[in-house]
Design a protein around this nucleic acid. Structure first.
Lengths: 108, 108
DNA sequence: CGGGATCCAACAGGATACTG
DNA sequence: CAGTATCCTGTTGGATCCCG
């Protein structure tokens, strides 16, 4: 988990630093209702490379938004899910989705 | 203004494509209550280069979030403000600020 | 004051190959 | 299945100089 002194002064910028990646918000949206497996996520997020998915998940785990549940089985079985803190992001996802939908009704 | 067919399919991604820059959300936050002048913005957003401020403003104008009001005076006098569409972003800014503040109370 | 025009560094993200 | 390890490329953003 990051320390306070690494965070931007502005709370808005703090949030942006946590979800700034190209795919992080989409990942959170997917994890909303249940934990997902690695390949399951990659298949659903069409276009994401597995390096970027790995990096994103690791950062979000580090930031406390996502947990990783490794069953230590063979073949490997790992689930990713939202922590309680991660679930606090949902109002942001909803606000973004609302605006995105509204925007599409406006343009052209 | 962008065309629909240039927009991502996911509404969340649409929003992100509009505010994805490093400074755009901070600019919107500043323009919340009144129009600002160019240098006024640059002074307040400590660290932003004028190229990035110019680019960001132009993109946001293009996306319909910000308007530009040129008084055509000498010396130049130009104000930037939020359009009605831009004001619809405020719930997102608020949600991000809320989460940012909450996050700071959680970490360490 | 409000930019335009360049040039450059940093980094995020993508492609590919390989592994326990 | 769930990654690691490289390598490479495009885009962002920053620095500097100039202008009406």
């Amino acid at each position: 988990m990051k320390k306070k002194n690494e965070l931007p002064a502005c709370p808005v910028a703090t949030s942006v630093s946590l979800i700034g990646g190209k795919w992080k918000l989409m990942i959170i949206r997917n994890l909303r209702n249940r934990p997902w497996r690695f390949n399951e996520l990659q298949r659903d997020l069409e276009g994401i490379s597995q390096k970027v998915l790995t990096d994103s998940l690791r950062q979000m785990i580090d930031d406390g938004l996502v947990y990783r549940n490794d069953y230590h089985e063979n073949p490997p079985k790992v689930y990713y899910g939202l922590t309680d803190l991660g679930k606090e992001m949902m109002p942001i996802i909803d606000a973004l989705a609302d605006f995105g939908n509204y925007y599409k009704t406006i343009v052209d």
